[in-house]
């Protein structure tokens, strides 16, 4: 054990300060210190993407960086994607409409990856969508309805086929 160090991280728009062990990863910080359990842990070695969050607006794997490294930076988690309490982002709404999830475990990471994609590329092709979620493993959906949801959210598909 080593002495805790202080970190100050803006999470979903709110400044959060805490003392953490240096070895605390960002995802453990979010889950264990802030009780933001929407971000999930799947592999802790940078493959599955379940822990994806936006760091200063760009998606990263929160298992592959330490909270201490993020001091002074801004993090957006799935809990921060909706424009306001009680509302959903267009993408979240499209995930519901297109049945883009089942067990929901990879979903927060998928939403993060796709939120970033649509911010960069409002009209992505199917190939670009698959590339953007290539680092997010899902065992339920076969990805099809996730692709549909992103198309729907980007106005490229009137309604999902289900």
């Amino acid at each position: 054990m080593t002495a805790p160090i202080s970190v100050e991280i803006t999470v979903n728009g709110t400044v959060r300060r805490a003392f953490v062990e240096p070895r605390t990863t960002l995802v453990d910080f979010l889950r264990d210190h802030l009780a933001l359990t929407g971000t999930h842990v799947g592999c802790e070695h940078g493959i599955c993407g379940a822990c994806s969050v936006l760091l200063d607006g760009a998606p990263v794997r929160a298992c592959c960086l330490f909270a201490a490294q993020v001091d002074g930076m801004s993090v957006t988690t799935v809990e921060g994607l909706a424009p306001a309490r009680g509302e959903l982002s267009k993408l979240q709404d499209a995930f519901l409409e297109s049945h883009a999830l089942q067990c929901g475990y990879c979903t927060p990471g998928m939403l993060i990856a796709c939120t970033d994609l649509l911010a960069r590329n409002p009209q992505p092709s199917e190939e670009e969508i698959r590339d953007a979620i290539g680092g997010n493993l899902c065992r339920c959906t076969g990805y099809q309805q996730i692709v549909d949801a992103v198309k729907l959210a980007s106005g490229q598909e009137e309604a999902a086929h289900g």
């Binding site: 359990t37 929407g38 999930h40 799935v78 979240q92 995930f95 929901g104």
Partner: peptide
């Protein structure tokens, strides 16, 4: 789906 409404908000409640 009913349960998806909590999952897309990050409000699922898993054992962890």
């Amino acid at each position: 789906a009913v349960e998806h409404r909590r999952f897309v908000r990050g409000q699922g409640r898993y054992a962890a």
